[in-house]
């Protein structure tokens, strides 16, 4: 049993008061390791909330530097950070919020050559990436490494998310099979995104991560939560694990391969 210091007890008091979290839950949070892939629109709120929540170790992955056009939604970065690697900018903010959290940075993009090694070391992964090849790659890696993760996608005013427990609940490929052809689907940079929508979805992902770590509530297993911020309609679409899934089904995948990169160019 971890003995929390008075500082920690006070910092996490609003968690500890929750009957479902309590000392035991906060202890689990403090002992957990979460990997956040992408330090952008989704990664920003996720990283901030997880650091604030006291997650023991957070890995953050991104190869980009902060750009002026990021600041409309990537709330972990500030104007003064323009030109700074996103992972370093994010680390500074997370440590400022909570010095108890250890932050590990990966200043690179993930690919088949490195993803498995990194993902393996974590209890939970957050997909905060902005392209399909990355999203499917993360799905493959998490299924192979048997690490649960939260999928997240946003576009214009909408968002979708599901939580995947490998080999137990449906995976991303169970629902979407494989990446759409290049240029078939618009992404944020080509179609636009309401900044707050990134925050809405990212905080849902952070909550899912904490639910999983503590072992409380019902994670978004076997269902896709979608919402449209214009109407503020939220929907859950339920489904089951696909036994014939290309990735997690009977045969399944045995090794990691890169998907063809999708070029971000809007057709619409």
């Amino acid at each position: 049993m971890k003995e929390f210091s008075d500082e920690e007890l006070e910092r996490y008091s609003r968690h500890i008061i929750l009957q479902d979290v309590g000392i035991e839950g906060q202890e689990k949070i403090s002992n957990s390791k979460v990997l956040v892939i992408g330090a952008g629109g989704l990664g920003s709120p996720v990283a901030l909330y997880l650091a604030a929540a006291g997650v023991g170790e957070i890995g953050i992955v991104d190869g980009d530097v902060v750009d002026l056009s990021n600041l409309q939604r990537q709330v972990i970065h500030a104007t003064a950070d323009i030109g700074v690697p996103k992972v370093l900018s994010a680390k500074a903010k997370m440590e400022a919020i909570n010095p108890n959290t250890k932050v590990t940075v990966y200043q690179k993009f993930l690919d088949a050559s490195n993803i498995l090694e990194i993902v393996k070391g974590y209890d939970f992964v957050i997909d905060g990436t902005d392209n399909f090849s990355a999203k499917f790659l993360i799905n493959d890696a998490c299924i192979l490494a048997n690490v649960p993760y939260s999928h997240g996608g946003i576009l214009r005013f909408g968002g979708q998310t599901m939580t995947i427990k490998p080999h137990e609940s449906a995976c991303y490929a169970c629902v979407f099979d494989s990446p759409p052809p290049a240029n078939a689907i618009p992404t944020c940079s080509s179609a636009g995104i309401l900044g707050a929508v990134a925050g809405m979805l990212g905080t849902i992902q952070a909550a899912e991560a904490l639910k999983y770590i503590v072992g409380m509530g019902e994670p978004l297993y076997n269902r896709l939560l979608t919402f449209d911020a214009k109407t503020m309609n939220f929907r859950n679409v339920n489904f089951k694990k696909n036994p014939k899934c290309r990735v997690c089904g009977g045969e399944g995948i045995k090794e990691i391969k890169d998907y063809e990169a999708v070029v971000c160019e809007a057709k619409l």
Partner: peptide, 11 residues
């Protein structure tokens, strides 16, 4: 019937 659309954004 449910239509599930791809959403590839995140950054």
């Amino acid at each position: 019937i449910n239509f599930l659309y791809f959403m590839g954004g995140g950054a």
